[in-house]
Amino acid sequence: MAGHRIFGTSFASIYPLYVQKVERKEHSKAEVDEVIAWLTGYDEAGLETAIADGVDLETFFADAPAMNPNSALITGVICGLRVEEIDDPLMQKIRYMDKLVDEVARGKRMTSILREPAPAR
């Protein structure tokens, strides 16, 4: 059974769209890189290689150095679906990434986006 067509979409084709989205809301490429790194474990060189090699999303996530164990804490709606209820693991990872970028664009605090506990007062 063939996977969803987005699985074959290159990371290089969606990455600039993420950057454009956050820059329109006066946020930065560095913030996009930070949330993708948090989710996947890719460093800057790894992201650049994935873009240069034109890897598809399936390969991008299969080759991810280390998916963040706290990614299961990502909840909410993206494209009309609750990310925590998506059955396909690859589709869920893609939607996690979408959700994180949306949160950056909305101006959410990075500590909240990265699911870090609030500092004690």
Rank of each mutant, 00 (worst) to 15 (best):
D88R: 06
C79H: 11
D43A: 03
T59E: 00
T40L: 01
N68I: 07
I113S: 04
L81E: 13
V77I: 08
Y42F: 12
E48D: 12
A118G: 09
M67A: 02
R106P: 00
S71M: 02
V19L: 10
M97V: 02
I14T: 00
N68C: 05
E85H: 12
A72Q: 08
T40I: 08
L57C: 01
L57M: 13
R5E: 15
V55G: 09
I113A: 04
S10R: 12
I94L: 06
D33M: 04
D56R: 00
A66E: 15
L100T: 07
I86C: 09
I36M: 04
T111V: 06
A2S: 15
R106G: 08
F61C: 06
Y42L: 05
A66C: 03
P119N: 14
V35K: 00
K29V: 12
V77A: 11
L90D: 00
I14L: 15
N70L: 13
R5N: 15
Q92R: 15
K108S: 03
G8Q: 15
P69K: 09
G76F: 10
D63T: 04
G3H: 15
I74R: 01
S71Q: 10
N70P: 06
F11S: 15
A50E: 01
Y18N: 08
P16E: 02
L81D: 10
L114C: 06
V83S: 04
W38V: 05
H27V: 05
V35W: 02
T59I: 04
F60I: 06
M91I: 11
Y18Q: 10
L100D: 05
V19P: 09
E116D: 13
Q92Y: 01
V101S: 04
R121C: 00
V104N: 03
A62P: 09
A120E: 14
